[in-house]
Design a protein around this nucleic acid. Structure first.
Length: 484
RNA sequence: GUCCCCAUGGUCAAGAGGUUAAGACACCGCCCUUUCACGGCGGUAUCGGGAGUUCGAUUCUCCCUGGGGACGCCA
């Protein structure tokens, strides 16, 4: 049984890169009929928070990346929180010490920091010299009895090499001589990532470790860990990093990286998933718009790229527009309403009482939207009494100085007589009467649009007239005529 | 600095020794159209450099260059 996991540390929100890693794990698991596990790596007690954890869970749920095992999936969650498994790690550490595969190190943080600094100044790589592994049992005992704090380090071979067999990168060889004896237990007894990740992955029966390329250089150490513990080494797949505009690892300084904020900005989860899947992977079919089900059906680690991929929100926006167009009017209205409320155009109560009207507005704007939150800006004149002319609209108004008064007079008469509810009828009369008045369509269409909406662009003109309504149309036309 | 990874248009990318080097986004035209958007058609633009291997390299090897990542008692 294939089993993969996503193992975030709850020290912040779920960012784009993490979401993409989770997605690849999810797609691989589903494609292979395996299981997707969520594990919370909270051994950094300084920075871990419950709020971060909740945000990560919410983010994954929003994207539809539900886990088969993990928090909330069984009566006993303790397996999926590392701080709840401390006893397990200690037992493993003790066993390693007893077997002579690990040892207690009494070097202090200060000593090591000083050495690291010195090495840096001398422009050479710092590597712990394993001196505490040379301590005799008596010396260790004496130091312990003296109450000296210690960390526990894993003994790593000094010669030979480790090979990471990576499903994406092939065999990656590392000389053991560049590795040092890594700390597995801190002085306060808390275990270190490189240790717990191995213990947990082994205990959970993780078969494939799919993670960002930034972990590739940790992998040789982890392989030594697996071997020391007597575990089978899983398969690894290191996926390329997501890059910012300057080609460095995507981070806050490149802009918004919190997944949940993309929802706030008006992105659809379908677009997010689709776009993220295409960062570092492409389907053999060559399709570009793919729903989750299709992604699962086609996902293949062998087709994952090696090079990092730049995050480009232009394409994401295009995709978002495509998915917005696929939404039903009801669903889209649900998504637009909060933005209209936030803009102050409607109240919570009106969101319900004026539902039909809101659906009509949404329907006529559907094909224009790239982001949900654009709904307010594009629809302002449907919710305000006045519709002052934009700069572009003023130009149109001025450009048609000859015909504008006549146009509006004809329009006013039509609306006063037929109202605005029957848009087909309004359109028919506008065409007939304008022609009779000798005004060309290029002219009256633009003038009318500017008059009733204040804008030069928007939905179909007769849709706009219908939704603005008789009363406001007349008011806006008269006000323009008066100002002229 | 040391180790590791990577290298096709502006971006995402297809490509597996012989191709007119796909496609998508973006951009520019044209068409459709009352505007915008959608859609359609067309266009601009890519194999980092140098050695090999080969009849033939974008594709294989090496070097260089460039970019990135990792070097914590963070994860």
């Amino acid at each position: 049984m294939i089993k993969v996991r996503f193992a975030p540390s709850p020290t912040g929100y779920l960012h784009i890169g993490g979401a993409r890693t989770a997605l690849f794990n999810y797609l691989f698991a589903k494609r292979q009929g395996g299981k997707f596990v969520l594990r919370i790596e909270d051994t950094d007690k300084e920075r871990s928070t419950k709020e971060s954890e909740q945000e990560i869970l919410d983010s994954l749920k929003w994207l539809g990346l539900d886990w088969d095992e993990g928090p909330g999936k069984s009566a006993d969650d303790s397996m999926y929180y590392q701080t709840k498994r401390l006893a397990v790690y200690h037992k493993h550490a003790e066993k390693l010490i007893a077997e002579g595969k690990a040892y207690k190190c009494f070097c202090t943080k200060e000593e090591l920091d000083a050495e690291r600094k010195k090495a840096e100044a001398e422009k050479r790589a710092f590597k712990y010299d394993s001196r505490c592994s040379l301590l005799t049992p008596e010396q260790v005992k004496a130091k312990e009895e003296a109450g000296m704090p210690y960390t526990v380090r894993l003994k790593v071979p000094k010669d030979g090499e480790v090979i990471v067999e990576d499903m994406i990168r092939g065999d990656v060889k590392t000389a053991n001589s560049v590795l040092d004896d890594m700390i597995i237990l801190r002085a306060d007894g808390m275990p270190i990532y490189n240790f717990v990740v191995v213990v947990d992955d082994a205990d959970m029966g993780i078969t494939h470790v799919i993670r960002g390329e930034d972990h590739l250089s940790n992998t040789p150490k982890q392989i030594h860990m697996y071997k020391a513990l007597g575990y089978q080494v899983p398969k690894f797949a290191h996926i390329p990093l997501i890059l910012g505009r300057d080609k460095s690892k995507l981070s806050k300084r490149h802009g918004e990286t919190a997944v949940l904020n993309y929802r706030k900005m008006g992105y659809l989860k379908e677009a997010m998933v689709n776009y993220l899947a295409f960062l570092g992977w492409s389907p053999e079919s060559g399709k570009d718009i793919m729903a989750m089900e299709e992604l699962i059906a086609e996902f293949d680690l062998a087709r994952v790229h090696k090079a990092g991929a730049m995050f480009d929100d232009q394409k994401l926006q295009w995709m978002n527009g495509m998915y917005i167009r696929k939404k039903s009017t009801d669903e889209l209205t649900d998504m637009c309403v909060p933005h209209l409320i936030a803009a102050g155009y409607i109240t919570e109560a009106e969101a319900v009482s004026r539902r039909e009207y809101l659906k009509k507005v949404t329907a006529v704007q559907q094909e224009k939207l790239k982001l949900i939150n654009e709904i307010a800006g594009l629809s302002s004149y449907f919710f305000t009494e006045e519709a002052p002319l934009t700069d572009d609209a003023k130009k149109v108004w001025e450009k048609n100085a000859e015909e504008r008064v006549k146009t509006l007079e004809v329009l006013l008469k039509i609306i006063e007589e037929t109202g605005t509810d029957d848009k087909a009828k309004v359109e028919e009369r506008v065409r007939l009467d304008m022609e009779a008045a000798g005004i060309k369509s290029k002219v009256y269409m633009h003038v009318i649009r500017v008059a009733v909406s204040g804008c030069t662009q928007g939905p179909g003109l007769f849709d706009v007239i219908e939704l603005v309504g008789k009363e406001r149309c007349i008011k806006r036309i008269k006000s323009l005529l008066a100002g002229n």
